[in-house]
């Protein structure tokens, strides 16, 4: 009971603190803008810990965060092995191949308006479909190891990146293209010096959407068969054994990997498209 009271008291305190912080004179500063969501997150964790302990929730339904933390600390080698298998081998390989192929395809079809007019609606259509469903087929074709996961990731990221790149290549204005013409720039020069840089904000938009898709694809593909390591494999087997602290540990790793991956791509974007109004803010 003491746990429940403590958790509720902490919640009330966090709520009051956040209410005060978000109406205080320094609410625009970076420190406060970081502190408020951090306090909110911490409150959720404490509430979760207190309620699971105080109400005696069995760990096969919801383990307390401290148990998950202990599990993470105790099984770092396993988590690292799963991370390498799923993220580095499966998701990252597929991401690089899929995004590279999509950008190249967009550049190849750039000269043909006919192909663009045909491929764009088809690509838009395919991008809205549940491509994750191809996972069982690709696992059958490429075997249980990371190659099939990379193939699923390629299939998932290709069309979002393709659509965004084609849109981006059309982003340079007629005035800018005319200027390149007056310089008597060749097609290749216009592409490299004007149109590709102008397309970068769009390309990075596709690349950022694809980071999450890549991780989802690699994890879900492992539900259809995988060697005895990998985040998706671990999640599905440990769920079957009802050791949920391990499942939550994998989810924590997946969340961390996902945000770090997104953050990395966003950081590269900031370096590449430093001239764009949205980055100069």
């Amino acid at each position: 009971m003491i746990w429940v009271i403590f958790a509720l008291a902490f919640w009330a305190g966090g709520l009051a603190l956040n209410l005060w912080l978000s109406n205080c004179p320094w609410r625009g500063t970076l420190a406060v803008r970081l502190a408020v969501p951090a306090i909110f997150g911490l409150t959720i964790l404490v509430l979760w810990e207190g309620l699971t302990r105080g109400l005696g929730v069995p760990p096969v339904i919801l383990p307390p965060p401290s148990a998950i933390g202990v599990r993470i600390a105790a099984s770092l080698p396993i988590l690292w092995g799963d991370f390498v298998q799923t993220f580095v081998k499966g998701a990252l390989t597929g991401y690089v191949m899929g995004c590279g192929a999509a950008v190249l395809t967009a550049i190849v079809i750039d000269r043909s308006t006919f192909l663009q007019r045909g491929l764009l609606p088809v690509g838009n259509f395919i991008a809205a479909l549940p491509i994750i469903g191809t996972a069982p087929i690709l696992v059958m074709w490429f075997g249980f190891d990371w190659q099939s996961k990379a193939a699923v990731v390629v299939a998932m990221v290709f069309f979002p990146v393709l659509i965004n790149t084609v849109q981006g290549l059309a982003a340079a204005s007629a005035m800018q293209k005319d200027l390149m013409r007056t310089y008597s720039a060749s097609y290749g020069q216009t592409l490299a010096k004007l149109r590709l840089p102008a397309a970068m904000p769009f390309i990075f938009n596709g690349l950022k959407i694809s980071t999450t898709l890549a991780l989802i694809g690699a994890i879900v593909a492992e539900f259809f068969g995988s060697p005895i390591r990998g985040m998706g494999f671990r999640i599905s087997t440990e769920v079957g054994r009802l050791s949920l602290d391990m499942v939550w540990a994998e989810i924590a790793v997946a969340a961390l990997a996902g945000s770090a991956f997104y953050g990395l791509v966003a950081a590269v974007e900031r370096g590449v498209t430093f001239w764009h109004p949205s980055q100069r803010g």
């Binding site: 912080l21 969501p37 909110f40 999450t212 989802i216 499942v247 997946a254 996902g258």
Partner: peptide, 21 residues
């Protein structure tokens, strides 16, 4: 200020992974 950053961050993590659980 407290919820919005988490809602945005949730878009970058594979929340589909907790489906089996």
């Amino acid at each position: 200020m407290s919820v919005m950053p988490w809602a945005i961050a949730s878009q970058t993590i594979p929340i589909l992974a907790i489906a089996p659980m």
